[in-house]
Amino acid sequence: MTAFLLKRVLQSLVLLVIVSIIGFAVLNLIPGGPMAQYALDPGMTQDDMDRLAEQLGLNRPIWVQYFDWAWRMLQGDWGTSFRDGNPVTTVIGRHVFATFLLMGSSTVIAVAIGTWIGIRGATHRYSIFDYAATIGAMVALSIPTFWFGLIGIYVFSLKLGWLPAGSMYTIGDGSVLNYLHHLIMPSTVLALVHIAIWSRFMRASTLDAISQEFVKTARAKGLSERRVIMKHVVGNALLPMITLAGVQLPSILTGALVTETVFTWPGMGRLFLDSLGYSDYPVVMGLLMFSAILTILGNLIADIVVALVDPRIRLA
């Protein structure tokens, strides 16, 4: 176990280095840069902009900038935002909650509905429900998330006026109900794709479990079908899904970022787009690293949990 963990952590560290090099190269090999936002300011001269670039260390060769950044990163210093001088960790930290709230609530929706559809599809195989669920899932995977959000805004905010078109809550009303009201549309939109994915995997996983020997034994013992499904099938079907949850993490994060842009959700996706707009490289790099760490951790935890839950799975 320890050896396995060690190996995985080492692999992850190598991954992080690769991610950072890719990210840094992409950001810094491009024309323009952080000074562009001041180019139309009536009082800023080229001298002012050159001075700022110098002060921010942008005039150094890229590899020097990279090693400087990497060295600080190793010491736990994520750098400071070009824009407002705040530490990157502080800047990102302020946006994490909103994104996690969105991811969490939509995951709850996706898992609940997806599990139900998946099990029902498997137990009623080739029924109309099963076909509808299959086709529905594929259509859901084909709808652009941002467009689905737009249509949602049109119908529920502009036409019906039932749900707010954006933001996380109304100022002066921090009640849980108010949060929920604002959360309904974005989390449902984000959940759509994941309901589709989750239900497909759940269906396959349930089918696998149903054909297992112990299910047949349970049935033979005369347990009701309902009990068999609830007690023996579901538990075993959910096990492989743990891995899926870990693997799905980047995709949920991606979805959350897209959803945030449509619903003006104050999360990391918003921050990423804003920081890109201002070429605030330290924050952009910070977000890249943060999401990479999150993804890698997600995979790692999924592996470990599976290993702990099911000793039959050998740790490679």
Binding site: V26, P31, P250, L257, V284, A292
Partner: peptide, 23 residues
């Protein structure tokens, strides 16, 4: 394959947006 893992380990939308906002 580690490079593949590297590319896979952050949301590709980040990379996509960073690239398209820059080029």
């Amino acid at each position: 394959m580690r490079t593949v893992d590297g590319f896979l380990s952050f949301p590709s939308i980040f990379l996509l947006l960073a690239l398209s906002a820059a080029l």
